[in-house]
Amino acid sequence: MRLALCLALLASPAFADEIWVTNEKDDTISVIDVATLEVTRTIPTGERPRGLTFSHDFSRLYICASDSDAVQVMDPVSGEILHDLPSGEDPEQFVLHPDDRRLYIANEDDAIATVVDVETRRVIAQIDVGIEPEGMAVSPDGRIAITTSETTNMAHWIDTETETLFANTLVDSRPRHAEFAQAGSQLWVSSEIGGTVTVFAVDDQRELAKIRFAIPNIHRDRIQPVGFEFSADEKTVFVALGPANHLAVVNAETFEVEDYILVGRRVWHMAFSPDRKLLFTTNGVSGDVTVIDVGRREAIKTIKVGRFPWGAAARPTSGG
């Protein structure tokens, strides 16, 4: 009886871990099964889906439907849109606060960051930031939120108690993505046109390091850092280099680039599998996802998804 139940569970498609990928120009999400590395579902969304993130218990998926001017809330089991959140215009990317309630949303066309309570579905605050806000991050203790503005070329530091800016730091051109690291003591920001990743000390916003990249036979203009993610131990960072079609593998302690991995065209963002053994990159121009074996630092498979895949998020369903 127990054996039969196990077998039944194994056969169930809902059992495997998944990677969810937004397809910006197809208005869909592709769901990839981590075990089989195949697309198992394609789910319609609002217009121009970009950023996506799960609630902490993975019972809800939040989707930036940029051209629908909404953050959509989806039931990931049924794939149904439950309701929209008021998001401000043109939401591009967001980050969910550790309180699991506040969403910090970058409104790309409006030079505003919007804070929404996902339970009351109300806007708590709107914060004037620079032009074309994009990268969003929140510190592990929840006290600081960051938005980066692509045309103003700044990281804007938001005090989440007052929902106001307390600092603005210049970075290189077209900052795209931000992440806190080392227990919230560092802020990392990628600059697409500047071609760099800058590491800041969080306590006084001073610059700790600037990481540059070089790949033989690719002009430095085309090496454009976009999304990046830390390994589980935070010792390694994987940086998507856009039209250079490579990931850089960076040592997070020495800030040195250790490796480059060839992936698809115009690599954009990425997500780890829940066990952090595989890394899935969205390749905007080639319309596919490259699967990286994290331990071997090798690309092992390419999976076709929709047109212009943009964001990626993991949904653990096994063992939990």
Partner: peptide, 14 residues
């Protein structure tokens, strides 16, 4: 961490 003093100084900058 946001220390009150650091916050004050940064606000003046902003």
């Amino acid at each position: 961490m946001l220390r009150p003093l650091a916050l004050l100084a940064s606000l003046a900058l902003a």
